[in-house]
């Protein structure tokens, strides 16, 4: 855990990022002057209401978009360099599985693209299937699976190249509450096993508090960093954490950011 290390090393540095969409007459300012750092092996959530630019921010880190101004570096490199070296995996809100591929074939897609030999990647995908508990379903097609299982496949796929970083864009927000809680526990388990750096976009306060080492709270219109909160994570069984006093304390702390914010918003909107 973070607190054990003396000096955490920076994995992702976001420096004075601004992002404007649209052409001259219809400009929309999505992000204004956003800066923060994400440390190695950390679980960070980007939390905020819709329209705060959290997904945009994730896409900027993943080199799927170019910022209007500012700079992002991942391990001292440009995100493009990291993308070309396949240093991160992505999970979207929708599973985004290829419907003509079976579960196993879907997980192997990045490996194929990377040009790994078939004999090798079959072993990798089998391990990943085991990890997400889908071994019995490996020859099923995506449409034969439930939403939660599909999202597990997507997570396994993102891990298949064993990238040091995992970007997740509201991966559980389309799932029902029970599936969501199960997958959150699974994700923490995966995090413990693989020790990835995870950047997790969400609009759920409890989810962010439950999962993260730190929560970056964004405010909207335009998106700016409101505050960065350290979740002093408790050791112990994660399922107990949800009922702990600290969890409620932290949730309340995060919630306070928004109440202050919404008060001021009310004032502006009148």
């Amino acid at each position: 855990m973070l607190s054990d290390e003396a000096v955490p090393s920076t994995e992702i540095a976001v420096e004075r990022i601004s992002m404007v969409f649209g052409k001259k007459d219809h400009e929309v300012e999505a992000l204004r002057d956003v800066s923060f750092e994400i440390y190695k092996n950390e679980f960070v959530s980007l939390l905020g209401p819709s329209g705060c630019g959290k997904s945009t921010l994730l896409r900027l880190m993943a080199d799927l978009l170019e910022p209007t101004s500012g700079r992002i570096t991942i391990g001292q490199e440009h995100p493009r360099e990291m993308r070309l070296r396949r240093k991160f995996g992505i999970v979207f809100q929708n599973p985004t599985l290829f419907e003509w591929r079976t579960v196993k074939d879907n997980i192997e897609l990045p490996l194929e693209v990377f040009g790994i030999k078939k004999s090798e990647y079959s072993k990798i995908s089998d391990q990943l299937l085991e990890m997400v508990g889908l071994t019995p379903f490996k020859h099923h097609y995506p449409w034969q699976l439930s939403g939660g299982m599909q999202q597990r496949v997507a997570i396994a796929r993102a891990l298949s190249l064993d990238p040091p970083i995992l970007f997740m864009d509201e991966p559980f927000s389309a799932l029902d509450e029970f599936t969501k809680e199960k997958l959150q526990l699974d994700l923490l388990e995966i995090k413990k096993k693989t020790n990835k750096t995870i950047v997790f976009v969400t609009h759920s306060i409890p989810e962010a508090v439950f999962l993260s080492d730190r929560v970056i709270v964004l405010s909207s219109h335009p998106g700016r960093v409101h505050s960065i909160l350290n979740m002093d994570r408790e050791e112990g069984s994660p399922s107990l954490v949800r009922q702990s006093g600290l969890f409620h304390e932290m949730t309340a702390a995060v919630r306070k950011c928004f109440y202050k914010e919404s008060d001021s918003l009310d004032g502006q909107m009148v």
């Binding site: 993943a62 799927l64 993308r83 995996g89 985004t96 897609l109 693209v113």
Partner: peptide, 8 residues
């Protein structure tokens, strides 16, 4: 975006 993230 997915394919792009694999640098395909």
């Amino acid at each position: 975006e997915l394919m792009s993230s694999y640098a395909a």
